[in-house]
Design a protein around this nucleic acid. Structure first.
Lengths: 170, 170
DNA sequence: TCTTACAGTTCTAAAATTGAACTGTCAAAT
DNA sequence: ATTTGACAGTTCAATTTTAGAACTGTAAGA
């Protein structure tokens, strides 16, 4: 499986991973949400090599996640700004942060707190069902093929253990 | 910045990325949520090289995201099962899927629909504030350093443009 | 005995990433 | 007038990762 193919798989998660699923891209996006906009800003905040940074920024622009906007003419300089498509990545970012807050903090506690302007409180992000508003649990969700389904990847029956005799160790 | 260091950064997102932030790991986790449990199952579903698969599975076990459980004795065979820590990745997976559903589907439509057992409807995941229940928008969230803050990475003031004269092109 | 299922390990070639230096424009300081 | 620094890249050799294929070993079933 080549990376280009990922974006064509009949699986929304694979396609998303094809676009933002590598470490530097995710870190660059973190910086975008922290309002970094310029090449040097990304480079010094992340310590990424300039080579890779240039490449990743280009890809994000090609994908319509960032827009490259001139802010100066001589010499030509540009800023990288999140498009709406990019802003829509926010729930992914928050989900990543929240898992880290839950499972990766040390004794010091969270590095960063999030305050919801609307209610004024520090919060955690909670993922709920758009239909009933209840929090989502993996156990309570069943998947079935949609109109764009094409391959077993999207359907995937549970790994039937092929009725083999189990020798000891249940 | 080396990858090992990522896990020690004072940023929950960086730490999470250090653990699950590469393409194969994310795809392996997708398979886990689709109930794949065995080496061959992952390998044939993903087309990942056996070498990398073995390595990634080991890492996920080390991180406590998967548990390696014997299901047969001779020859020794094991299954890889999500721990609670692993199951807690569900919101990340759903957020990835949902972004793909929104921005990466072709004319055919979604490859996969999700049904919420509790309410019986197909749904989209929505991220809301744990305190007031309102959907979260990037614009309405402000961050500030928590008890575990240590570096500018977690604080990061907006990229002040250094009061330079702007020549044309606002 | 031969074949298949399964879970890896080993090896070489190809691709991606790192690190460091280099290019070019312009502003400000010396 | 010359030097220095900010900025946004590009280039290139060296290193690290990943891909692809073959190989190991146990045991069941034909």
């Amino acid at each position: 499986m080549k990376w280009k193919e990922l974006e064509e798989e009949p699986c929304s998660m694979a396609r998303t991973i094809g676009v933002i699923g590598d470490r530097w891209t995710l870190l660059i996006l973190r910086e975008c949400f922290l309002r970094t906009r310029r090449f040097e800003g990304f480079q010094s905040a992340l310590g990424i090599t300039r080579h890779l940074l240039a490449e990743r920024l280009k890809k994000l622009v090609r994908q319509g996640i960032l827009r490259r906007i001139p802010y100066q003419d001589a010499p030509k300089r540009h800023e990288y700004i999140l498009t709406q498509k990019g802003l829509d990545l926010y729930p992914i970012m928050m989900a990543l942060v929240h898992w880290g807050d839950t499972h990766m903090v040390d004794e010091r506690g969270r590095p960063l707190l999030h305050e919801h302007r609307k209610c004024g409180k520090n919060f955690d992000p909670v993922m709920v069902c758009s239909e009933c508003g209840e929090p989502l649990l993996a156990r309570e969700v069943h998947t079935h093929p949609g109109p764009g389904a094409r391959s077993p990847l999207a359907i995937k029956a549970p790994d039937k253990p092929k009725a083999k005799v189990r020798r000891s160790a249940a």
